[in-house]
């Protein structure tokens, strides 16, 4: 008997889930379903508002991280503005996670920086220094230098110095020494500058 070619069985393909289904799953009681849905919405522009609406209220850190990863990948003005508001959050986990996400958005965040540098809340400006520390953008160091030179709050200046630390060069010496002169009674700032210049 000759060989009979059996009909190839169709491969088991995972069932495609629509974007609408994924957005509905963002409200599923199971955090793992929400996490997978958030990651599955990568690249889905229509999901941005749904994710932004939920990121602050999400209490499972893994789901929140997934939402922020998906949002940051969009790197649009809408996402940047939606995440920047969380730099002022009372939730330490949220404001730190938002800062981390923003620091991976070099296309949209630069347009926000001038406003963030002028934010009346010095805690927001401290978080901005955290964002700029890791933002891969050619102007990041310039903005940090502006913070060191002009910001009226010593904690912001110290945070900006810390952020600038890996890139410090002799060209920054005068900038740092001037910062110490602006806050002569701040021992931490003096220590920071002395350590930076060492």
């Amino acid at each position: 008997m000759g060989l009979v070619r059996r009909k190839a069985e169709p491969e088991q393909q995972p069932q495609a889930v629509s974007s609408d289904d994924l957005m509905r799953q963002l409200d599923d009681p199971d955090p793992e379903v929400r996490r997978v849905a958030a990651l599955g919405l990568d690249g889905v522009a229509e999901a941005v508002d749904a994710l932004l609406d939920r990121v602050a209220a999400e209490d499972a850190p893994t789901v929140r991280d997934a939402m922020l990863t998906t949002l940051a990948a969009h790197d649009t003005d809408r996402v940047a503005a939606g995440l920047a508001v969380h730099l002022a959050s009372d939730d330490a986990e949220l404001r730190t996670a938002a800062a981390e996400a923003l620091s991976s958005m070099p296309i949209s965040v630069p347009a926000l920086v001038p406003r963030l540098l002028e934010d009346p809340d010095h805690d927001v400006r401290v978080m901005t220094a955290m964002v700029l520390a890791d933002l891969p953008h050619p102007e990041s160091l310039t903005w940090l230098a502006v913070m060191i030179k002009d910001d009226p709050h010593p904690n912001v200046v110290a945070s900006a110095i810390d952020a600038l630390l890996p890139s410090l060069g002799p060209e920054h010496t005068e900038l740092l020494e001037r910062a110490v002169r602006r806050f002569p009674d701040d021992p931490f700032l003096r220590f920071t500058v002395e350590a930076a210049l060492r």
Binding site: A158, S159, D162, L165, F188, F191, T192, A195, A196
Partner: peptide
């Protein structure tokens, strides 16, 4: 997470 703060408090 700030290296300078760690150094300051450590010192």
């Amino acid at each position: 997470d700030a290296a300078t703060v760690r150094m300051y408090h450590t010192t």
